[in-house]
């Protein structure tokens, strides 16, 4: 049960290092939003090219928990949708696959914002 934790740590850590280098070595004024958008888009593209699948196989949560994993889920869903129901599936597949994540983010985000106040 614990054998897959170390690969998750290493793969997840390395993906985050890529994000850190992106922040530190490119031009100033990179905000978290830029990093997150780049990662999700990169995840979709790599997922579409079939290059993200091996990372998930090796790293498990190390590849699915970073936001590139969210992109991978979207791409995988879109391709599966395209396979089963053609063009319409290409539109619905991605969002369907990522639906739980999106819904969880909306509801948990909303509830937290209701309960807490910013601390500064």
């Amino acid at each position: 049960m614990f054998a897959n934790i170390i690969p998750a740590f290493i793969v997840g850590g390395l993906i985050c290092v890529v994000g850190q280098l992106f922040m530190d070595l490119t031009k100033a004024n990179i905000q978290p939003a830029h990093v997150l958008v780049s990662f999700v888009t990169a995840g979709v593209v790599l997922g579409g090219l079939g290059l993200y699948e091996p990372l998930v196989r090796i790293g498990g949560a190390g590849a699915t928990i970073p936001l590139s994993g969210f992109g991978y889920t979207l791409a995988k869903g879109a391709m599966e949708g395209a396979q089963s129901s053609g063009l319409l599936g290409a539109f619905s597949g991605g969002v369907e696959a990522a639906a739980v994540g999106i819904a969880a983010a909306v509801i948990f985000g909303y509830l937290t914002a209701l309960v807490f106040n910013p601390k500064g």
């Binding site: 922040m23 905000q31 978290p32 910013p118």
Partner: peptide, 11 residues
């Protein structure tokens, strides 16, 4: 800049 609770590394 950005919301105070948003995680961010300042230059």
């Amino acid at each position: 800049r950005m919301p105070t609770e948003q995680g961010n590394q300042r230059a």
